[in-house]
Design a protein around this nucleic acid. Structure first.
Lengths: 185, 185
DNA sequence: AGTGTTCCGGAAGCACGTTCCGCTTCCGCG
DNA sequence: CGCGGAAGCGGAACGTGCTTCCGGAACACT
């Protein structure tokens, strides 16, 4: 029942290379980029992609989770390096940048593919604690108002970043900045 | 430069049959239904589909425009048959039903396909005049408040109908009804 | 009816996701 | 160090869907 054998070194190396390659390819060519392109970029065959990620959507989901992690993990260092209000400010800016690269992904989330079913919960599980910590600290320091929850704030910013007709990505940044100003007391 | 020849009767018949078949197939199987299914339903070969609609997305766009027309054209009869407030009421209910069938289409609109580029403008060009007429009449009759524009109302209702996690289509209907109640003075 | 044009059907071509299996590489052991 | 077998790899092959192509049928005009 226990692990009878270690994971082979080349397998782990390829898995990591695939995640990195997929991140780059999806960023340049969109989430609809062919699996073969990802395989080529990672320097492996398509069979290897499917060994590690049985479905194309599993690969997309893995990239998404990886980016969620990177964004959520950015919170503690910011909290350590800056005052409560500025840390909150900087993290939200980071969060907006994260959202900015997710235009095509929102559509994928509602595509009904089971691989994406767990993502909204993962999103919440990683971001809510991260933001709650920053927000509580800022509230405790008396630097921001205390009647806005982390959930409220996440949803509000996410909605602000929804693509609307004829507005560029910097519109989202500006509106989010206005929102954050509104938090200050 | 003038029309050298009439359009062939079978060509027009096929074109119409395709639009109708596509409407039905997309309604049953979603906008991602195969082109072959549409061709089969219309009783023609796939070549004929591509003669009339060079790209798959052109067919989708044509169905969309056709439905926009049907909804917008419903306004004048309602205005003639009912009092200003009730006509407005009934037309907005019709509009909500129109939106309810567009879940998959919102994603397609943001897919970057050039065939969809003109659709938002068409949406506005058809719906704004239709709603403006109804709204102006109701305002003139003193039956609804005068500080909400047709554009505001269209956008508000459209946003209410956006799919949110775990809410059904009747949620949209209820929220829209609440909104309309708020219009009454 | 004759004739030149338009239109039709569906097979063929292509792109992409996914599967399959023979070959290679790595790990643990003697 | 060398060996055996399991784990992993590559990429040809398959299924499905969109799009193109062209020989022949259908149509409009005379």
């Amino acid at each position: 029942m226990s692990t009878p054998r270690r994971v082979r070194a080349d397998a782990r190396r390829n898995s990591d290379a695939l995640l990195e390659a997929a991140t780059e390819v999806f960023a340049t060519a969109g989430v609809d980029a062919p699996v073969r392109d990802v395989a080529a970029r990672a320097g492996v065959g398509v069979g290897t992609v499917y060994r590690h990620y049985p479905k194309r959507s599993d690969l997309v989901a893995a990239v998404f989770r990886h980016q969620v992690d990177a964004c959520a993990d950015a919170a503690p260092p910011l909290a350590a390096a800056y005052g409560p209000a500025e840390a909150l400010d900087r993290w939200l800016a980071r969060f907006v940048d994260f959202l900015a690269t997710k235009r095509g992904l929102a559509a994928a989330l509602h595509s009904g593919d089971p691989a994406f079913d767990a993502l909204p919960a993962y999103f919440d599980a990683r971001f809510r604690p991260a933001l709650t910590t920053l927000l509580d600290a800022a509230v405790a320091a008396g630097e921001v108002r205390d009647d806005v929850s982390a959930t409220d704030l996440l949803h509000a910013v996410a909605h602000l970043c929804l693509p609307a007709d004829g507005v560029g990505p910097d519109h989202a940044r500006r509106m989010a900045a206005v929102l954050v100003d509104g938090l200050r007391r």
